[in-house]
Nucleic acid binder design. Sequence first.
DNA 1: ACCTGAACACCGTTCAAGT
DNA 2: ACCTGAACACCGTTCAAGT
Lengths: 199, 199
Amino acid sequence: MARRSDHSRDEIKEMALVAGEKIIEEEGYKALTARRVSSAIGYTVGSLYLVFSNLDDLRLQINTRTLDQLLSGLDEVMKRCNTPHDCIKALAREYLRFAQRNELRWLMVFEHKLPAGIETPAWYLNHIEKLFECIDQQFYSLGSVKAQTGSVRAARALWSGVHGICILASTGKLNVVSGETVESVVDTLVDNFLKGWAV
Amino acid sequence: MARRSDHSRDEIKEMALVAGEKIIEEEGYKALTARRVSSAIGYTVGSLYLVFSNLDDLRLQINTRTLDQLLSGLDEVMKRCNTPHDCIKALAREYLRFAQRNELRWLMVFEHKLPAGIETPAWYLNHIEKLFECIDQQFYSLGSVKAQTGSVRAARALWSGVHGICILASTGKLNVVSGETVESVVDTLVDNFLKGWAV
DNA sequence: ACCTGAACACCGTTCAAGT
DNA sequence: ACCTGAACACCGTTCAAGT
């Protein structure tokens, strides 16, 4: 045993991330254990710690990949829309669509908390910040009179709201009235907020 | 050893719930372990399983108590407000205030997920449902023309939105612009939404 | 240099055995 | 009847020892 060199460090890392993502999508956050991941890629537990500093590091890297996918989906949408109003609506729908299509992986991005005392790395928060900036931009384009002072705050408020609907829907707590779709709830929030904002 | 009878079943249960709540508030969700709780109340691990069916049962019961506190806070607010508009705004602020004052316990209510395959008990979902109903009621009182068809959907949309702001703020992901308060973000969401709804 | 596998200190949960 | 404490099958993480 030892000294196999079947795979490079980077290959092992990639394999572990992919295996981890699969485990999460199939069995959820809690099923992601060091032993499960390592055995899925044909290595022993110890090897994982050659490539990740600990399990939280692995989780954070998976979350970063999820965020990147989400962001590139939003970027695609932004290219294909016209007025800021339509754009915000389309972005909100894409956000929901992604959350629904990658439910367990998306949930992990927001559920994950580092142990008390250890701060979330700044680069990770910056990554999440980019989600908000997509919307900030659209509100800026709306070019309202109050653009200067309140548009960032408005963007945060609306986007957090969309996020809240997605979270409650994903965790089965939205209790939408029968016949209604989650999408219609998102539309309701966006439409009314933007109508109010335009006044 | 054995046969102490220092406390009744109900007393042990109550002690465990209180000890559990303290652990959560001080060290968060993950610090709540069977061994920690049992040693905090001066019993061995096994005893806990005489009183709770498992750890998830203990968690669910703690969450139920948290929800009850939150609901009674909202009820208090409802008594003291006048127009539906003011009432919705005051309820949203109270929701945020509770989330901020009981952060880790409040977070557990929404982060907790039972293992895959096991559904959240209906009585628990009904309890969460009551949160929404507070707002449904106010929207009904707004008595808009569209009251019949869309007011429940609107209530869900706005309340999920308020929830989203609270969640992102509690998990340090809201990134409010410096100088702004989370409360001002909540106000922005509520004010603009209601303004749009009134049009 | 790379990887193993055993070790350590933890988990949740169960249950025979003691009073 | 009530409670214990040891057991079992798991964790995350480390690290001496092998090739």
